[in-house]
Design a protein around this nucleic acid. Structure first.
Lengths: 247, 247
DNA sequence: CGTCAGCTTGACTCATCTCAACTAGGGTGG
DNA sequence: CCACCCTAGTTGAGATGAGTCAAGCTGACG
């Protein structure tokens, strides 16, 4: 993150994602769920030295597929969508990043996908060269990175099953449960599922159209499994949603 | 593989995948395209010490999803399918392994997928504990493993695009081109594409039914893009197949 | 208070699936 | 050696889940 400003913003500014009262790694809210958890206190200093605090507005582009990958990121606030486009404009979202998630695991020359902010986003930005050197010095950081990569790979394979072999109802149910689980790990509710992304985003993630997503959620609401609320849904009968998702 | 018998098999047995005349890493045909390429001559000795030569018949199960992951493998001959099953029997193949491919990148406690031999398979089997220790000792082996994992992840994301956003024609065309590229790297032909897997396997890889795969290939043959030959297809007009796949 | 993006809903279409019949090759045992 | 079977593949006819096209609703924002 960017070095702490000399003058702190007032307390009331805290909810604004473009301000933070504490920009040190040690005080980072998402450290426990991030790559950074692999480092001890002294190593955090080395990490902090190469970190830059960056912010994006809703719908702002963070990076583009095939661009030179000169940085990796750790999301600290907000939601990011990662996607690939086909030449004719069809889009597949390959993942959503929530606070604590790392972007750029591959440490490759070019970004393999594009990324933009679904809602206002804050992130730690690490120059690739410096980060790569740090990884070379700390084998257990590499180990952690590798664990994160293989975990991602496993999620990707689960998502292949969903895309290739599940019906629209199953896809939507599994998506909602997946979001519940991810928010839960960040201290969220088991009942209110926040959905900062649009129906089109969900559709492009699930391999459906936005109309099918909308109809499916409406159908779930009609059969009293959930309630559509502002910015998300509220589960009324989680068991039936779990049954639909095949969990 | 099982330790080499004291009496070597005669030369004429060489084509049989259950016999090898040279079972050292140094003489391994797939070393150049494998994880093992990360190791120098002396390190190969350490690897060889924990390797076991194993063989599987066509359709034999190699490992099962959720079983304790007590070994990792490097395929040296034949083709392996990796898949996940839904409780009702629907199957998604998450990948095919060809000679040189590594299975068990995750180094996790349980296998995240099942694997079986599409055709007779030979592989190097490494006990997980021993392999993991070796990785701990050799950071550049871990680096190589991480590169392999992120490469896999990138392929998985490409496959998500295919599963979520491509038509049957595009899926089949992209699959055939992908197999051509993989065989090419192993010294295969640019014109004859070997397809050791069944139509059902291809369908479960592409998120289609076997009938749709068969019809699509027949359609390509009818429009003179390719010829169906025993064990595969022969490209007649690769440019049109590439155009279909959007490449 | 008009505009616009996001969302919902309806009517109809169509790509792919389902069900079913048939063919071809390979292996086995009488 | 051939009759049988079994697996894999092909093809057709009809069904259907999800897509397309279109209209209208709603809430946020200038």
């Amino acid at each position: 993150m960017a070095p702490q400003e000399a003058t702190k913003p007032p307390e009331w500014a805290a909810p604004c994602p473009h301000e933070r009262t504490d920009t040190t790694c040690a005080g980072c809210k998402v450290r426990g769920v991030s790559i950074c958890a692999a480092l001890d206190a002294s190593e955090l200093g080395a990490l902090e030295a190469i970190a830059e605090d960056v912010h994006y507005d809703a719908r702002e582009t963070i990076l583009l597929q095939d661009d030179a990958a000169d940085a990796v990121y750790n999301v600290t606030q907000g939601t990011v969508r990662l996607y690939k486009l086909l030449p004719d404009g069809r889009r597949q979202i390959v993942g959503f990043l929530l606070p604590g998630d790392f972007m750029g695991l591959a440490l490759s020359d070019r970004y393999p996908f594009s990324a933009d902010a679904v809602e206002p986003v804050a992130a730690c930005r690490f120059a690739r060269g410096a980060f790569s050197s740090l990884v070379d010095e700390k084998p257990h950081l590499l180990r952690r990175l590798h664990e994160a990569a293989t975990h991602e790979l496993s999620l990707a394979q689960d998502h292949m099953v969903l895309l290739g072999r599940r019906t629209a109802d199953e896809k939507v149910a599994a998506f909602l449960l997946g979001m519940r689980e991810r928010w839960r790990r960040l201290g969220g509710s088991l009942v209110i599922i926040l959905l900062p992304m649009t129906r089109q985003d969900i559709a492009d993630y699930l391999g459906l159209t936005l109309e099918t997503v909308s109809r499916t959620i409406s159908k779930f609401a009609r059969s009293r499994m959930l309630l559509v609320v502002p910015d998300g849904v509220r589960f009324l009968d989680p068991a039936r949603i779990e049954a639909l998702a095949g969990h």
